[in-house]
Nucleic acid binder design. Structure first.
Lengths: 246, 246
DNA sequence: TGAACAATTATTGTATACGATTTTAAATTG
DNA sequence: CAATTTAAAATCGTATACAATAATTGTTCA
């Protein structure tokens, strides 16, 4: 099944990062760093990302920080407002619905493709992922566990060997992390683990149809675990002030 | 059916362009301009986009041009290579397949949603679109006709009132334009018109299922109209040299 | 006391300058 | 004459400086 098409990217710009269309450099480093921080819920939605501040933290000039922030804006993780600056994005209720509707459309199909392309190495990779997630949960590192949980979905897309869809899934997962930070109502974050293990079982059996159905149910379940009846915060300015100078 | 949810974007950064997450300004202007030029096949894939050159054309500094080029890179229309500069993207055969696979997955579902949300005004909008396309074709303005043909798909996504999916469709359509520029083998570009008219009929009948099926067939047909057996050009350097100093 | 207004501060938008890298072309040599 | 080396030119990566805009603070007046 594994065709000799080993090179993933034979475009002239084949050296750039899969997550951001940027050449290697400090710009990409800052992107990756901020991206991880957001995925691990170390940066709350609405947090101001001052160019000077970020630049001082990472020892970079405003020029490169600006490029990083704009890159994150294109991924939907950062909102840039004219003459006001960049903020960690705060998805609306509507966007939350749309993101999970899109996931329910795309990810089941991707899971089916992944099941058909699954190799022993891929299965081991997914198992390691679940183990790492379990370990993080055991250590009480909720942020890391959540980031790994989201990354599980991205890895599935990578296994499906569909770069275009992988990029879409990545963006949707990242935004889902912000949505969960704002709207998650359940206390049990470990419930995901069950779905992921079930998915793994379908993958082991190379059962594309089962993987598709499980993934669809899983995403609908995640969607239903959100409290999307109200705005995220009644007093956003106050909360922002508190989170600002924690 | 038309709910009172009139505001499309109630996020704090609600003033930015739907196509690029950029605040209004010259950066967005240059983005829009280059984007149109690429969609109308006035800029060929592989064309070098020198920062100085573009900046001189639009009377802007390199700073703003860079931001525009990076924005286009995030949409997949431009490839940036380290220390070499920006080029109009040249999708590979693999990417061409993936883009149309993604379209075949997403756009039929979007068409179904659009059919369910269709109003009289939307139908008039779509009709006007087809008329404009027909007029452009009659005037021999192939580039404009092609851009309008692609835009037809985007408008459907807008009617479906799904911003997240609309952004994805937009990106896929833009890349499709580049793919068609490189790999299209049929001479009859007007054949699309038939499919679009058939879609319009399904929309008029508010037949979601029919719209979904028609859209899927249409995209598969477009995919099959590509010559994806070979690399786009045997002597790319020559062609690039010609387009460079036209 | 509270609201409206004005001056200050801080932050972003843009332009320009300098260093690093690549490309191109000329010059040299076998 | 062709291939290689070397030097020049062009282009990009980054930093910094200045201008424009928004936020803040302090003041004044009702």
């Amino acid at each position: 099944m594994a065709k000799p098409m080993t090179d993933l990217m034979d475009t002239p710009a084949g050296h750039q990062h899969p997550l951001f269309p940027l050449p290697p450099g400090r710009t990409l480093d800052i992107c990756t760093e901020l991206h991880s921080a957001i995925l691990e819920h170390r940066l709350a939605p609405g947090t101001k990302l001052s160019e000077d501040e970020v630049g001082e933290i990472y020892g970079a000039s405003r020029t490169v920080v600006r490029a990083a922030l704009q890159a994150l804006a294109h991924s939907g993780m950062v909102a840039i407002e004219k003459n006001r600056g960049a903020f960690v994005a705060k998805p609306t209720v509507r966007e939350a619905h749309e993101v999970f509707q899109a996931r329910a459309l795309i990810e089941p199909a991707v899971a089916r493709m992944a099941a058909e392309a699954m190799t022993i190495e891929h299965l081991a990779q997914l198992k390691a992922h679940l183990d790492a997630e379990h370990a993080a949960l055991h250590d009480g590192d909720m942020g890391k566990a959540l980031a790994l949980s989201g990354n599980f979905h991205t890895v599935i897309a990578e296994i499906a060997d569909q770069q275009v869809l992988t990029q879409m899934v990545r963006s949707l997962i990242s935004r889902s992390s912000l949505i969960i930070a704002l709207y998650w109502k359940r206390a049990d974050t470990a419930c995901e683990s069950h779905s992921h293990h079930a998915l793994l079982k379908a993958f082991e059996e190379r059962n594309g149809r089962a993987a598709e159905d499980l993934q669809k149910s899983h995403i609908i379940d995640l969607h239903s675990g959100l409290n999307l009846k109200q705005q995220p915060e009644a007093t956003p300015s106050l909360a922002e002030a508190l989170t600002r100078r924690g």
